[in-house]
């Protein structure tokens, strides 16, 4: 992928995250902070599909943004063919792993496994 395409995604995910995280925070304000972390409420939130969908999208956006950001930092830290390949594929793997792990929680709750 061209670097400009990657960076367009980087900026777009950041912008989208600003909007979606704002909605996420507003939703959290409907409850007290301690209350919102209670087991039943957390499960209930995940079972409310539109909200769970929002969280899933934020997870995907910020995983892409964060791991690409990490790739940028690491590429500037050290150079070399093998190192740069390892950084690029490593960050891609981390991104996928984090999305998979986060999604797992949301899916498990909704499939009645929790």
């Amino acid at each position: 992928m061209r670097e400009s395409h990657i960076m367009k995604i980087h900026y777009a995910t950041a912008l989208a995250a600003v909007g979606l995280v704002a909605v996420h925070i507003l939703m959290r304000l409907t409850q007290g902070f301690a209350e919102s972390l209670e087991y039943e409420n957390v499960v209930a939130n995940y079972q409310f599909l539109p909200y769970a969908g929002l969280l899933e999208i934020i997870l995907i956006l910020l995983s892409i943004h964060g791991f690409n950001g990490l790739r940028v930092i690491l590429l500037e830290l050290k150079q070399g063919r093998v190192y740069e390949k390892a950084v690029s594929y490593g960050c891609l793997a981390g991104m996928i792993a984090l999305i998979a792990y986060g999604s797992r929680t949301i899916f498990m709750v909704n499939m009645g496994m929790m």
Binding site: R2, E3, S4, V72, L75, E76, Q79
Partner: peptide
């Protein structure tokens, strides 16, 4: 200049 050590750094 549109490469991994180009303008975006």
């Amino acid at each position: 200049i549109d490469e991994s050590h180009g303008i975006w750094r």
